[in-house]
Design a protein around this nucleic acid. Structure first.
Lengths: 137, 137
DNA sequence: TATAATTTGTGCGTATGTATA
DNA sequence: TTATACATACGCACAAATTAT
């Protein structure tokens, strides 16, 4: 599975393998991945390498990691609450600041939608729960 | 600066300190941060701790790290190319897949805008370069 | 209630490789 | 070529959170 001489870092290789297994349904949403120690034995890499690989999946929003409990495959695509856009607003996105993440208790790997009014005021919404609908004329 | 007995992990404390210094303009965009070794001496933590702290800032898109060159504070580029939204489109955001990041050569810590058409088709744009403008009726 | 086992979190030291100046 | 700096990887130890006994 992991090629030590491919030039590709092992933690990226492992992240690719785990991601593939997740999207292939091998690890269904809601289930736990094997523990870090188990994975390090299974793929014959150090635990630190496993943690970096899992960290990648976490940053991508694929899994949720909790101390003492394990690494759980995140359930995909919950219903988005629709915000109705208003003319001349500009919608973009970025990663939240630590304060914003704390305020809305956002999981890792989830961006925020930034809706900027013509007058410069901005509203911010977690992108895993909100979407902006373009209104009909 | 770093409190060993606060309960807050040192690499998080250091990330907070560095982030604060960056946003305060102490380390202007385009400049290099002190080297990892220098930071580890300055804040009296291990180099691994420094790397984890910098890794946080990198995931947030605040800095760009290059081997042999150093850690550079990323220039904020609020110059967004505007896409004109069309009625009934739904705009949201998520983190890019590795393929999407490679395709557009996106830096870390940058989400993608997802524009979903009424028929289900989706367009994806890097959120650091694009925004969606809500058209007037 | 208390204890142990499991699992993730943190931190250190070390080694080797690679890129840049 | 040499020095500097970052990248990857391993191993070890201990702490903290959770779950099982």
């Amino acid at each position: 599975m992991i090629d030590l001489h491919s030039g590709v870092p092992r933690h990226r290789q492992l992240a690719d393998v785990l991601r593939a297994r997740i999207v292939a349904g091998d690890h269904p949403p809601g289930t736990l991945l094997p523990s870090e120690t188990r994975l390090s034995q299974e793929y014959e890499v150090g635990r630190g390498t496993v943690r970096r690989a899992v960290g990648i999946l976490r940053a991508e929003g694929l899994v949720d990691v909790a101390s003492g409990r394990g690494t759980r495959v995140r359930s995909r695509a919950p219903e988005l609450e629709e915000l109705i856009g208003e003319p001349d607003q500009l919608v973009t996105a970025r990663m939240p600041t630590p304060e914003e993440r704390a305020r809305w208790q956002m999981p890792e790997g989830v961006p925020v939608l930034v809706v900027r009014q013509p007058d410069g005021l901005m509203d911010v919404y977690p992108a895993d729960e909100y979407g902006v609908r373009i209104p009909r004329g």
